[in-house]
Amino acid sequence: MDVLSANANVSRVPFFRFLNFEIRSLDSLHAEAEMTFDERLIGNPVMEYYHGGIIASFMEATAAIAVHPDFADVPAKPINLTVDYLRPGVKGPLYARAKLTRKGKRMASVSVITWQTDREKAVAEGLYHFLLV
């Protein structure tokens, strides 16, 4: 599936429009996305950091695209997640890269990393499971 069709799919999901991100690259095992900073995504209004739950949501969305970019109705069904928060997400674009660690018949395991100016300095890392049946 190409990036253009994946983004057309993303734009059909109300919550993905709320997060306001775009898929930047896509292959059979990875998805990369960029989210634009917005006031409604703030968690700490004094420092203007991204809300931790928004970072987790963005990672979940990118992971779901990696699992199933050509979803028909709703994105891949999440089972659970763990997120490790490493640095604050400051005002500016946030990037996510999801890697399909394993895709079986019933389950998929995806690891996701997010960063801002330097890929080596992760803002958060997450592990997500999806139900494929």
Binding site: P14, H51, V74
Partner: peptide, 21 residues
């Protein structure tokens, strides 16, 4: 706005995570 489906009756998991956080 927090839903994933066109009918807007199914919440995205992420918003529940954000709520818990």
């Amino acid at each position: 706005e927090f839903c994933v489906d066109a009918d807007q009756t199914l919440l995205h998991g992420g918003i529940l995570t954000a709520l818990l956080d």
